[in-house]
């Protein structure tokens, strides 16, 4: 945890009792979370544990069945605060027939930036994500890693104060991954709030705070070291094994009550 962080401040984003069901799957099951300005909050959990649903709810792309997500004090979904939020989805979500700069400038325009600002900002980001020399190439011809980098640049184009990154480093080579995290750290120390989902445990170590998500709930929250200490484990993964064992035994007891409801 950063010493400068003030927990009494209004959080950049907060979810309370977030629930969402897709058919038979309870993707979010009463999820409470706060993300503060200046911190990197890592969201870790197995696939299907609700990480992506949470990220989408925070940016207002998913309406929960109950509970709410607030961003900068505004209940989501709200268009008003979206210009302060950057979102990078798992899919690259780029226009293949445009070049790199074209993609950046278009999404900048959707954020309400004027042409000149958009262009200037796009040039800065091209350097940042290491796409200099490729910015005038069509995205169709980009490699997977280049697409991922451009996708990150798009999420940052309007200098958002809350940055939601859904698996930002999948398919990114280790060297670039390191650079991404250095940049996330720099953005956070400039005051941005960053919510990043990840599978990769060494990335988890780089977060200020972690939220371990399992079956739509946060089962543990705190610094990497704090979580390890409180569960008495050496590796963070072990927490999930404990949780899985816990729900398996609790399931029998709970299933009767659930089927009646």
């Amino acid at each position: 945890m950063l010493p400068s962080m003030d927990m009494t401040e209004r959080p950049a984003a907060r979810t309370t009792g977030l629930k969402k069901r897709f058919g038979k799957v309870q993707a979010l099951d009463g999820l409470d979370l706060e993300i503060h300005s200046g911190e990197i909050l890592g969201l870790i959990g197995p696939s299907g544990s609700g990480k992506t649903s949470l990220a989408r709810a925070v940016v207002g792309l998913l309406t929960p069945d109950s509970g709410k997500a607030e961003v900068f004090g505004e209940a989501m979904p709200s268009r008003k605060v979206l210009s302060r939020v950057g979102y990078m989805a798992q899919a690259d979500a780029l226009y293949d027939d445009l070049d790199g700069l074209g993609n950046l400038c278009y999404f900048a325009a959707l954020q309400g930036m004027d042409r000149r600002d958009a262009k200037r900002r796009a040039e800065v980001l091209v350097d940042f994500v290491g796409l200099r020399g490729h910015e005038k190439r069509r995205v169709r011809d980009y490699s997977g890693g280049m697409r991922k980098r451009l996708s990150l640049a798009v999420a940052l184009v309007h200098e958002p104060e809350l940055i939601v990154l859904d698996e930002p480093t999948v398919g990114v080579d280790p060297r670039l991954r390191l650079r991404f995290w250095e940049e996330f750290r720099r953005l956070a120390s400039d005051g941005a709030a960053i919510l990043a989902t990840t599978h990769v445990m060494d990335e988890a170590e780089r977060c200020d705070r972690l939220a371990l998500v399992f079956e739509g709930r946060v089962i543990a929250e705190g610094s990497p070291d704090g979580i390890r200490a409180s569960f008495g484990v050496k590796e963070l993964e072990e927490v999930f094994l404990i949780a899985a064992a816990g729900t398996a035994s609790a399931d029998d007891a709970a299933s009767d009550g659930r089927s009646e409801a």
Binding site: L82, Y87, D92, A93, L94
Partner: peptide, 14 residues
């Protein structure tokens, strides 16, 4: 299908 619609709607456009 490519997700650009969702991304566009993560911006404050109508």
């Amino acid at each position: 299908t490519s997700g650009t619609l969702e991304r566009a709607f993560a911006a404050p456009i109508g």
